[in-house]
Write a protein that binds this DNA or RNA. Structure first.
Length: 955
RNA sequence: GCUCGAGUGGUGGAAUUGGUAGACACGCAAGACUUAAAAUCUUGUGCCUUAUGGGCGUGCGGGUUCAAGUCCCGCCUCGAGUACCA
């Protein structure tokens, strides 16, 4: 066999391992490059052809950078804590560690076949105690920190205690819940009294006992324990982060999610909202990911305004982005859950309000969201005062106001906001017009460019001026202030699950304390069943005291960390994976620094990619990192979609299957009274894609595939039979999954690597179609035939290469280099194909050309390149060779083929000496015989000559 | 609804700064080899056409330009994200 890829690939996999070709060490004499692919969760299903797409791309880039002389870190590992292994444990009793181990072995086997240049000695697994020891250590760092809004930085909790000791809470500007003091159990702080609003003196602080101080500090820490509304998923028995909930259902499994008040650990990511937003400008990520993060953070600038409730001491605080419309307020709406609802409601309205609150609480979050058109609400009977006019403004409640955003209350300006408008119209509330020239007879006018009216001191103003004037007036009245509001909520960090990192915390008198560093890691204790206890405690509650390797206080923390904990910092551990003293040494962290190229799916935009940025900022503020952002450049690979095969079954005659091109003809010939049209008549069944080849069905294969097809009848009976097809996500249940290992066995890893790149731009989603793989395989075979003949005899000569061959070579060096520099992986393959075609045509077997060609091939087809490199007589690895340099001298042409256009339409080409000036070209074109055909009078209106490129004649 | 992308042959796609639209590959067709098939090789392949020629062609309609897939304006379709966010 001329291109024996099986032999070649197996040989080099062994050799590379033996020679430790891909081992990476820190080398200060070389510039570093850090290429990273998102590590996978090792699922039971194994890899499909979609997974390696990004891995191959980053592998090619890493190899290319190594050729260019960079010291390249390109590691791989496993995000090995997760729900599926635990679900399997619940069903079968198998320890998740065992399942995980097995799945990792399968992943490794599949990955090894693909020829990646990973340094496996740096592998990390998030579920390995030597790894999660440091996840726990980072948790402790975050626990021991607070966010200083004055310095805009994370600071150790000690600096806060210093401030408390010096001045109490005065001069402390910390990121915390604005009304944190309301959550404090005042019975434990008798000296605060009922008017406590969160301020205390140094003397107060010093007179507090340990418990009291800890309770106060808990409201400042960057990770804190609090009763918060969480997304509870009963089916999974755990809480979920906001990004783990899609359309009111759990992202994994699609189970219903309800809101529940629970005492949970949270991470104060909201403190970083502005920095997470601002620093997006410093990273080279796709616009779409940046946009998704911006939307998720959801910054709105506006004002918070207080309305005094008539006859009460209470005020209602609202957030508005349009303080300029303050004179258009016709009512105030509270969320049904708003704490003041019970306080302000009048006796007459009590029953109605109670009924409405009750009905709203019964509706799930999902129902409330989907039911936008149905306007509901209820009047409380109470009024508040307009801060400027003193007008009595009715207070309503309505479920279009969300309790969880802003203050849970809005000042309704029906003339300027459509939802308020709809609400007012529905309940026949009078609408005040406040903008000149605005037509509000049909709908609200939300524009900012019309001058205000009926607005006292704002009359005639518009836009920013009006907003600023309104805000300063509101401040003068002491009725509020300008404010920036974010949608980003703190991230819930507790999971009521077993297979995750234990939180390094124990409780004494229900106060949490950290486990000492030298006791870490707190490892997972063995338990008898992976289910919650009968009391509803998390699975870890099943562990007895002696089952824990570390046990302190009254009890250990029973929650584990969420999936994103381990993945928020794994890129750091690759730098120094075996360090037992630190999570990463300062030296190695400074050397490898940020990830230069991060390859991964866009689906992590609001989860992993946001949390990693958050932890990086915390660790940077605390002095553990020298950089502020983890991933400098990111490319999101698209999804590879499957091409499902569809078999048409006659519903009237369920054992008969009809060829896709005979559906109408069959339906006419054998009409069915029940199913009239073709659409009604046929059931579309998905069958294993390996039973079809280019839609043509293997009938015997189908009969053998599943019992129900054993006696299948086909129409037409004897001629060829075609199935339909559908492009959709690759999934086991559609029988459309392609296993890369199977393709590796059939065509070789080098072919698969080239083919996955050849499919198109990596960022784009595209259907997987095995048909084209032959073409790419042929290319590699054709290329190898430049070096060796059918019998394996070396054809390479030391003859001087022809001018044409040198031109082909240098053209290709230029193309490959330029394309890789702009991350255009797909066009490199066609460039190499063109080179191969041309060199074959030129019968080029010259060493000078082929040696360099091998280098160009090496990132894409490393096994073949290594083999050819050895065949050329080299003993060192091709991976250590320097990247070829493009020499323009080889591309210089004596003649240039000018395309000649008339009025912009290309008509013919003319070959002219390269040194011709504009005038000479013009002259030559006019003298050319074919020109007369398009220019009968020989006199052009105008002539455009771009030397070396094009001629355009304007007729 | 809002935000961000994308629309090019039968298919995947190429065209990097406005300068030969459809590279490269698949598929298809014809031919060679063969008893036959597979494999391989050669040639052709955007559409229309009265065919050594001409016309039309990058979602649609306008515009700028000597020249537009590329730039500008308006629209349509598809995909992704997000959604009573005040």
């Amino acid at each position: 066999m001329e291109y024996n890829f099986r032999e070649i690939e197996q040989k080099w996999i062994k050799e590379w391992r033996k020679r430790e070709t891909y081992k990476v060490t820190e080398d200060p004499s070389k510039e570093k490059f850090y290429a990273l692919s998102m590590f996978p969760y090792p699922s039971g299903a194994g890899l499909h052809v979609g997974h390696p797409l990004g891995y191959i791309a980053s592998d090619i880039y890493a190899r290319y950078k190594k050729h260019q002389g960079f010291n390249v870190l390109h590691p791989m590992g496993y995000d090995s804590f997760g729900l599926p292994a635990e679900q399997y444990a619940i069903e079968t009793g198998t320890h998740p560690a065992e399942t995980t181990e097995k799945n990792i072995a399968r992943y490794r086997e599949q990955l090894d076949k693909l020829g990646f240049n990973y340094d496996w000695s740096r592998e990390v697994r998030t579920s390995d105690p030597s790894y999660y020891k440091w996840t726990q250590w980072i948790f402790k760092q975050i626990f021991n920190s607070w966010y200083n809004n004055d310095t805009k930085k994370t600071e150790p909790i000690a600096t806060l205690i210093e401030k408390f000791n010096a001045n109490g809470s005065y001069n402390v500007n910390a990121a915390q819940d604005e009304e944190w003091f309301k959550a404090l159990d005042l019975e434990k702080f008798p000296f605060f009294g009922e008017y406590f609003v969160g301020e205390f003196t140094a003397t107060d602080w010093q007179s507090m006992n340990e418990e009291q101080q800890q309770l106060i500090l808990m409201h400042y820490r960057l990770t804190y324990l609090a009763n918060s509304w969480v997304n509870w998923c009963p089916a999974l028995g755990t809480v979920l982060a906001n990004d783990e909930v899609k359309d009111g259902k759990s992202e994994r499994g699609g189970h219903p999610v309800v809101q529940k008040l629970m005492r949970q650990w949270s991470m104060r990511i909201s403190a970083f909202a502005q920095r997470l937003l601002d620093d997006l400008d410093t990273v080279d990520w796709s616009d779409s990911i940046k946009e998704i993060q911006r939307n998720w953070i959801g910054r709105s600038k506006g004002a918070s305004v207080k309305f005094i409730v008539a006859g009460h001491s209470e005020t209602i605080e609202v957030f508005t982005t349009r303080p300029d419309t303050i004179f258009g307020v016709d009512f105030v709406t509270l969320a049904p859950e708003h704490p003041l609802v019970n306080v302000v409601t009048t006796a007459e309205q009590k029953a109605d309000i109670a009924a409405y609150v009750q009905s709203a609480s019964l509706k799930s979050e999902r129902d409330r969201q989907s039911d936008v058109k149905n306007i509901t609400g209820c009047f409380t009977g109470a009024y508040c005062e307009h801060p400027f006019t003193g007008k009595q403004i009715p207070i309503w409640i309505g479920d279009y106001v969300l309790a969880s955003y802003g203050t849970g209350a809005v000042m309704a300006v029906p003339s300027g906001d459509q939802r308020d408008y709809d609400f007012a119209t529905h309940f026949k509330i009078e609408i005040t017009a406040i903008m000149e020239g605005a037509d509000i007879s049909e709908q609200a006018d939300a524009s900012k460019d019309k001058p205000l009216m009926n607005s006292d001191f704002l009359n005639g103003l518009k836009g920013k001026k009006a907003v600023n004037a309104a805000v300063s007036a509101i401040m003068d009245k002491d009725a509020g202030r300008g404010k920036v509001q974010y949608r980003l909520r703190d991230a819930v960090f507790s999971r009521q699950r077993y297979w995750g990192e234990p939180v390094p915390v124990y409780f004494k008198n229900e106060i949490p304390y950290l486990i000492e560093d030298d006791q870490l890691p707190v490892t997972l204790p063995p338990i008898d069943e992976y289910l919650p206890t009968e009391d509803g405690d998390p699975p870890l509650a099943r562990a007895k005291k002696e089952d824990w390797d570390v046990f302190e206080g009254d009890r250990m923390e029973l929650n584990t960390m969420p999936g994103w904990a381990g993945s928020s910092w794994y890129f750091l551990r690759y730098m120094d994976p075996h360090n037992t003293e630190e999570f990463v040494s300062e030296e190695k962290m400074k050397y490898w620094n940020q990830v230069d190229l991060y390859m991964g799916g866009a689906e992590h935009a609001t989860g992993h990619l946001l949390y990693s940025r958050f932890w990086t900022k915390v660790l940077c503020d605390l002095g553990h990192l020298s950089f502020n952002e983890p991933f400098k450049k990111m490319i999101n690979q698209g999804m590879i979609l499957g091409r499902s095969s569809i078999l048409n079954r006659d519903k009237a005659n369920p054992n008969t299957y009809v060829c896709v091109s005979h559906l109408e003809d069959y339906n006419e010939k054998f009409p069915s009274p029940e199913y009239k049209t073709v659409d009604e008549r046929f059931q579309k069944l998905r069958i294993d894609i390996h039973l079809t080849d280019n839609d043509s069905l293997d009938k015997e294969g189908l009969k053998a595939w599943q019992k129900e097809y054993f006696n299948a009848e086909f129409y037409p009976k004897d001629s060829g039979f075609s199935c339909g097809h559908e492009v959709e996500k690759m999934s086991k249940r559609w029988y459309n999954v392609e296993d890369p290992s199977v393709l590796c066995d059939k065509f070789g890893a080098d072919t698969l690597r080239c083919y996955e790149m050849f499919l198109g731009p990596v960022e784009q989603s595209k259907p997987w179609d095995t048909k084209g793989i032959n073409g790419v395989h042929n290319f590699l075979r054709k290329l190898s035939r430049l070096y060796i003949d059918k019998e394996g005899v070396l054809l390479v000569t030391d003859d001087a290469p022809s001018k044409d061959s040198m031109k082909t070579l240098h053209k290709t060096i230029k193309k490959v280099t330029e394309d890789l520099n702009r991350f255009s992986w797909n066009t490199v393959v066609s460039g190499m194909m063109i080179a191969t075609n041309e060199l074959t045509e030129q019968k080029c077997h010259s060493r000078a050309v082929l040696e360099t060609l091998t280098l160009l091939l090496s990132p894409y087809a490393p096994h073949l390149a290594e083999e050819l490199w050895e065949k050329l007589g080299n003993s060192d690895s091709v991976t250590t060779q320097e990247w070829p340099v493009f020499d323009a001298a080889h591309l210089v042409e004596s003649e240039i083929h000018y395309p000649v256009s008339f009025n912009g339409k290309m008509r013919f080409k003319i070959s002219l000496p390269a040194e011709f000036t504009k005038d000479q070209v013009e002259e030559a074109v006019l003298a050319y015989e074919k020109t007369a055909q398009y220019l009968p009078d020989g006199k052009p209106k105008k002539m455009i000559v771009v030397p070396g490129r094009i001629v355009n004649v304007v007729v």
